[in-house]
């Protein structure tokens, strides 16, 4: 797989929920090369070394034709700039290792908060790769408004269950409860992305049931390409570190300490 450095024309930037934006740009090559779970590093300031200097990592959220989207929440200076008017985005990608998707068998996509971002692209992929296999989507958020991006999930036709902390949509409670209620049998593959405590819960529940679980981790990143060694996470089996950008962002839950 080739890593690209390119400038892509922004075609859309829509606020889909409170402070949540879906930014779409044109890149045929990225659309072709990217795999679900991979990310891109975006330069948010317009000039090369003007603040904020470092690029920001974002998961690939959606790919349609040559249109690639990211879904992001405004949390600081960089995402604030991204939420404004941008004619083009300067990006590196696709980066990291994505999900390993089984062609057969039961697959559950468990997302929480902005962690639903990479799961849409994954679900799109499942349509291509395993249309007739059972694929279940479980999504959680604090409140219904944060689940606005699920429109796109619905279009794909896989069964979807929702949970919100405040009960404003779907199940009143955590997304992990949805696992208990909706997943039976012993041959599930679980892929999850979301806040760390949620993923820990999903991983524990998966382990308890003997299901394989893939987690998508976040970490502060200076380079995103394996050069700075800044994105370390603790490995489970010995006293060493793994690197989110190079060894991940998707890991087998058994590999890392969550």
């Amino acid at each position: 797989m080739k890593h690209l450095q390119l400038l892509a024309e922004v075609t859309k930037n829509v606020e889909v929920g409170p402070g949540i934006f879906c930014l779409t740009f044109t890149s045929r090559e990225l659309a072709r090369e990217a795999r679900p779970g991979q990310f891109i590093m975006l330069k948010v300031s317009s000039a090369p070394m003007i603040d904020p200097v470092l690029r920001r990592p974002f998961s690939i959220h959606k790919v349609e034709g040559d249109q690639v989207s990211i879904l992001f929440k405004v949390v600081g200076r960089g995402t604030e700039i991204l939420a404004g008017e941008n004619h083009e985005v300067d990006l590196l990608g696709p980066l990291g290792n994505g999900y390993t998707i089984p062609a057969k068998g039961y697959l559950a996509l468990v997302g929480g908060g902005l962690g639903i971002a990479p799961l849409l692209f994954l679900a799109q992929y499942c349509i291509k790769l395993r249309k007739d296999e059972r694929t279940l989507i479980l999504l959680g958020a604090r409140t219904a408004a944060e689940l606005a991006p699920i429109k796109d999930f619905r279009k794909l036709g896989f069964p979807i269950e929702l949970a919100t902390d405040d009960g404003s949509a779907g199940h009143h409670g955590f997304v992990t409860h949805l696992m208990t209620d909706n997943m039976e049998g012993a041959d599930w593959t679980v892929v999850t992305c979301g806040p760390q405590p949620m993923m820990r819960g999903v991983a524990e529940q998966s382990a308890a049931n003997g299901w394989e679980c893939q987690v998508s981790l976040e970490s502060v990143m200076a380079c995103g390409i394996g050069a700075c060694l800044g994105c370390a996470v603790r490995a489970k089996n010995n006293d060493s570190y793994l690197h989110v950008c190079r060894d991940g962002p998707v890991f087998n839950a058994e590999e890392v300490i969550l």
Partner: peptide, 23 residues
């Protein structure tokens, strides 16, 4: 060398701090 525990990098004004720990 395994290096330092995370977080190892932080962005600052026009720069960054790192404590990779010579991994």
């Amino acid at each position: 060398r395994p290096g330092n525990p995370p977080p190892r990098v932080v962005e600052t004004s026009c720069g960054m701090l790192n404590a990779i720990g010579l991994e």
